[in-house]
């Protein structure tokens, strides 16, 4: 499956890109995360939420979307 992954804030600094298109054969969001953790090891140091097709979802959710986003919290004000 072809998936576009978007990165925000500090996550984009770790991946060094704002988005990328991946070929992925897993079935859940958490499987995709495992694959991203091994690609970008520093990701494990960050807390973030995952959106699938512009909707925030739990990690156990089935991977159905064409677009995934990794969203960190922003402390600044």
């Amino acid at each position: 499956m072809r998936i576009t992954v978007r990165y925000f804030g500090q996550i984009a600094e770790i991946t060094n890109k704002e988005k990328e298109v991946l070929e992925f054969s897993g079935h859940t969001i958490s499987e995709l995360m495992e694959s991203l953790y091994s690609k970008y090891t520093l990701l494990k140091t960050k807390d973030f939420q995952v959106a699938q097709n512009q909707e925030l979802v739990a990690l156990k959710t089935e991977l159905t979307g064409q677009e995934i986003a990794l969203l960190p919290p922003f402390a600044g004000g």
């Binding site: 500090q10 807390d47 960190p72 919290p73 922003f74 600044g76």
Partner: peptide, 20 residues
């Protein structure tokens, strides 16, 4: 509902420590 728990202390710096 968006971010259930505060991140680990120091994991994310605030504006006084980084630029904006």
């Amino acid at each position: 509902c968006l971010f259930p728990k505060a991140p680990k202390k120091g994991a994310y710096p605030n504006c006084s420590e980084i630029g904006v």
